[in-house]
Write a protein that binds this DNA or RNA. Structure first.
Length: 593
RNA sequence: GGUUCCGUAGCUCAGUUGGACAGAGCAACAGCCUUCUAAGCUGUGGGUCGCGCGUUCGAAUCGCGCCGGAAUCACCA
């Protein structure tokens, strides 16, 4: 089916060529949605066209409008207000659209095939020394949703997780556990493994701090004390032994990491996210070294007297960047160079997205430049999805001050709130315990996910716990509730035949169809800009529009049987889009709530 | 100081390539359930779009300069 707004665009070109000669440029033909307060569906801005018509805005609009009504069955009426030509699309067009495209279960989405672009997306990428918190939740939800949106817009997507399982941080937890753990494990304590390991990370910090204080009391400067605290030395020694493959350290390391992975797995499952591939830094941290040495040979990089290897980025307006330490070992950047290279060699991706917080903007800027310098053309295919920090109303989350919002606790609280709200409203009386729990989970998680995804990823956001448990207004539960209402109507109207019939559609009905007409463009834009919030806000608008319609007009008791079946057709389409769109956000929709 | 990003109602956020009096939600107040789910709907109040200059028929949107905030600039990850 031809898209009306495209047809209108072509008609504008036709009129100008026919009446005034020159065809206008692309930028001159502006077609947009008509604002609510005016009559019409699409609006042509006539100002840019005055140079062709040499007429007043009103006259120009009239000429265009008259031509379109006379020459296209899709345009049924028009009005001109202050240089804006508002066009009314024929009802027959909207009906055909409702009957056709909108009845497809996959409306708005594009199926990927073997030829489709391959997008690699790395997200989550946790450290294994502590449990996931609110910041990770934003990362995970964004990564998952963007993956879904990319898939729905015709891409093959490979989701990968790069787990940071090695380094000084995990040694700190290991050391504290060795000193004070008395052999306890998740089973003996009943704690989730990631939380248990996290507790020892905190314990290490306490030991460290008290040692520092002791040294300061003995008269050392704070700086000396911080560098010289014995436990820190022991942790470093542990890392050396890890790198030397010391069996005892390696065993403890893999045991504690296993605890963490089990904990993470539970949290991931609960969040509803998954990966096609999980990489571990203990396997990849040596990658990149060879590429750097090759770059050195080719004279792209340079070596200092102490043996360290650097990239000179002054031409790009940046500093010099270290790639190999003087002892020949790698830094993070080196690893990322190697990992990117390996993934490109293996998959030949068309693009590679890194979902990583904006605190690493500099890192990814440098990564792209270094790869480019080393001669890899695909460096332009790397994209850093730099998302903003999640802050609390009182300010930043600080682990030292205990203001970090733990992911598991937060999910518990959201579900508990959903339960409380639901019980107060008393709507699920007749359902079984299992069914009820499922709905509480869906609603609680829906509230959390929507709350985070409705915000533009690149912006910092404030997470106000009080606001997040509000289930009214622009929230996940509002949209879920709208869906449940729709399903309820559909169940009651199951036996009714659905056809568009001969009746005339009213303003609200057309408004809803017109809104759904935009859905494919919303998905494309969300895919292009890697921005799930566009989908979230669209669904909210649609749900709101539906609720107004639902309030003003009866669906099953409409005036005529034609109207009943048309409205059912309409409502089913809305339900499908809400379900589909929410799925792209990783949010489940309940049949009842 | 360099680089990147941000500044819209009391609060949290929309505002697609510049377009018609700048929109929601929350909070406040006032209404609507013998009718398909009131987690809903309707109404009222609330704004120098950080400030200034410029480009343009037209600027929250683009450019420049300020002011304010964030991140980052490690032989850390």
């Amino acid at each position: 089916m031809q898209k009306v707004d495209q047809v209108i665009r072509l008609l504008v070109v036709d009129v100008i060529r026919e009446k005034w000669g020159d065809p206008p440029g692309e930028a001159q033909v502006q077609v947009q949605k008509t604002r609510r307060e005016f009559i019409g569906d699409f609006t042509v801005v006539v100002f840019p066209l005055l140079r062709y018509s040499k007429l007043s805005p009103e006259e120009t609009g009239n000429v265009l409008g008259k031509y379109m009504v006379e020459n296209s069955p899709m345009v049924s009426d028009f009005n001109v207000i202050k240089g804006f030509l508002n066009l009314v699309v024929a009802q027959s067009y909207w009906k055909e659209f409702l009957d056709g495209d909108l009845q497809s279960g996959s409306f708005g989405t594009i199926q990927a095939d073997r030829e489709s672009p391959l997008v690699m997306i790395e997200y989550s990428s946790p450290n294994t020394n502590k449990p996931l918190h609110l910041g990770h939740i934003r990362n995970n939800l964004l990564g998952h949703s963007i993956s879904r949106i990319l898939e729905a817009t015709g891409n093959r997507v490979q989701k990968v997780n790069l787990v940071n399982d090695r380094g000084i941080h995990i040694c700190k937890s290991m050391l504290a556990w060795k000193k004070e753990g008395n052999g306890e494990d998740p089973e003996s304590t009943g704690k989730k493994g990631d939380h248990l390991v996290g507790d020892y990370y905190v314990k290490f910090d306490q030991m460290y701090k008290s040692e520092v204080q002791e040294l300061v009391d003995q008269g050392k400067s704070r700086e000396e004390a911080e560098a010289g605290a014995p436990v820190l030395g022991e942790a470093r020694e542990m890392l050396r032994r890890w790198e030397a493959d010391d069996p005892e350290v390696r065993t403890l390391w893999s045991t504690m990491n296993e605890w963490v992975y089990e904990g993470f797995e539970t949290t991931y499952r609960r969040l509803g996210i998954s990966f096609d591939n999980t990489y571990y830094e203990s396997d990849t941290y040596k990658l990149g070294r060879a590429l750097v040495l090759k770059g050195l040979e080719e004279g792209i990089l340079y070596k200092k007297e102490d043996g360290s290897v650097w990239a000179d980025l002054e031409e790009e307006g940046l500093d010099h960047k270290l790639l190999l330490r003087s002892d020949g070992t790698s830094v993070y950047m080196t690893q990322d160079v190697g990992t990117a290279h390996q993934r490109y060699e293996e998959s030949g991706f068309n693009s590679h997205i890194y979902v990583v917080g904006n605190e690493q903007n500099y890192h990814f800027q440098v990564l792209a430049i270094v790869l480019k310098k080393l001669g890899y053309q695909w460096a332009d295919k790397l994209y850093h999805l730099s998302y903003g920090m999640v802050e609390l109303p009182e300010g930043k989350m600080k682990s030292r001050e205990g203001t970090v919002v733990d992911a598991d606790n937060l999910m518990d609280e959201m579900e508990a709130t959903a339960r409380k709200m639901s019980e107060e409203l008393g709507k699920l009386g007749e359902y079984g315990e299992e069914e009820k729990n499922r709905i509480y989970r869906q609603v609680g998680m829906g509230a959390l996910k929507y709350f985070i995804l409705k915000v533009d990823p690149k912006k910092n956001m404030t997470f106000d716990p009080a606001e997040s448990v509000d289930f009214n207004g622009n929230t996940g539960p509002f949209i879920q509730y709208t869906y449940a209402r729709i399903k309820s109507v559909i169940r009651k109207g199951e036996s009714i035949e659905k056809v568009t019939g001969a009746g005339k559609m009213n303003e609200k009905e057309i408004g809803l169809v017109r809104m759904m007409y935009e859905y494919p463009d919303i998905l494309k834009e969300a895919s292009r800009t890697l921005n799930p919030s566009l989908v979230a806000n669209f669904l909210y608008e649609l749900a709101k529009e539906f609720n107004q319609f639902y309030h003003d007009h009866s669906i099953l008791s409409a005036d005529s049987s034609d109207q009943v079946s048309l409205r059912l057709l309409l409502v089913e389409a809305i339900g499908r889009i809400i379900e589909n769109g929410m799925e792209l956000l990783g949010i489940e929709v309940p049949e009842r709530m």
